[in-house]
Amino acid sequence: MTRTVYVNGEYLPENEAKISIFDRAFLMADGVYEVTSVLDGKLIDFEGHRVRLERSLRELDMPKPEAFDDLLEIHRELVRINDIEEGMIYLQITRGAPDDRDFVFPDPETTPATLVLFTQNKPGLANNPTAQKGIKVISIEDARWGRRDIKTVQLLYPSMGKMMAKKAGADDAWMVQDGFVTEGTSNNAYFIKGNTIVTRALSNDILHGITRAAVLRFAAEAQMQVEERNFTIEEAKQADEAFITSASTFVMPVVDIDGTAIGTGKPGNRALRLREIYLEESRKAAV
C-alpha cells in the first residue's frame, strides 16, 4: 500500500511527493529533523520533540513553516491515514527552495520553509527481540561538526559510522573525541556501575536526547544515581552494564564494546528494567 505523506500543506501519495532540486537541504544540508515514535497509535513524547525542533530552528536562524502550530494535528492525521500502530514519523524542515543555488541564506519573505513528514510502519517496535540479546558497538573517532546539539540533516558521518560497525561485525558505533565518548551514531550512550548511571553531560557536543531526558528522570525516580560527565571507552568496558537510548530504540542494552564483553555479556537487569519503565510510562503519557 502506498504511503500518504505530507509536503507543504498537502497530503499526497508518496510517489507523487516532490520538492525542488534547489531545496537547501538537498544542496547544503540546510535542514533540521525530528523522529517521533508511535506506540498503540499514539505519539510518544511529542511535546519534547516539538520543543527541540523549535530550538534547532532558532539556533540556525531558520524560519518556522506556516504549519508549525499544526504539527500535532498533522502527525495524528498521518498516523490515522497510514494506520500506524507501531512505528515512527519523520519530520524535516528546510530553509526552502530559492530560485538558484547560493551560500547566502534566502530571504524568508520570498522563500518559505519546506515542511515534509512521512511515516514508517514498524510492527514490533516495542517488543524488539534485539533488546533481549543486546547490541555490540565499536569505537570510532568523532569527526562531525561542532554543533551536535542541533538536530540537522547532516548525517553522512553517522551513516559512515554505522557502516564501519557493520563491516566490523557490530551493530553500532560510539564516537570518541579527545579521548572521551560523545554519543552513538544516532543515540545517546551510557554505562552502569553498581547503582550509578554514567552519561556525558549536555553541551554542544551531543544531541539533547528526548528519550535521554525521560530515561534519566525515570532512573532517578527508581533510586538510581546519575552522573553526567565525560567517560572513556576503557571505563565503559569495565562497567556492569551499558546501553543506548533513542526515539526508535528506546532503551537498548549494549553487551560488547570493541570486542570486550560488558558485565556478563548479556543484557543487564537494570537496563532491561529501565526499558520496561520507559515504555510503560511513555504509553501512559502518549498523545
Rank of each mutant, 00 (worst) to 15 (best):
F218S: 03
G209W: 04
L71T: 01
D240A: 01
F46R: 05
L72A: 09
M163V: 04
G124Q: 10
V35T: 05
E59N: 14
P129I: 14
I210G: 04
Y90E: 05
I44R: 01
S186R: 00
K64E: 15
W174M: 08
E47V: 02
A173K: 09
K284C: 05
V226I: 15
L216I: 11
G31C: 11
H208F: 04
F46A: 08
V137M: 09
M28C: 01
F22N: 03
A29Q: 07
I93G: 08
L202M: 04
L60D: 03
S159T: 13
V104L: 10
Q177F: 14
G9M: 03
K42I: 00
V198Q: 00
D171L: 07
I84S: 10
V32I: 15
V255S: 14
I81W: 07
I81Q: 05
G87N: 07
L216Y: 11
S248W: 09
I197D: 03
R147H: 10
N121C: 00
V137I: 14
L91S: 08
P158A: 06
K284P: 05
T119F: 00
P267T: 13
R229D: 00
H208M: 07
V181M: 07
R283G: 13
K162Y: 00
R55S: 12
E235S: 02
G96S: 12
T111E: 00
L279F: 11
A173G: 09
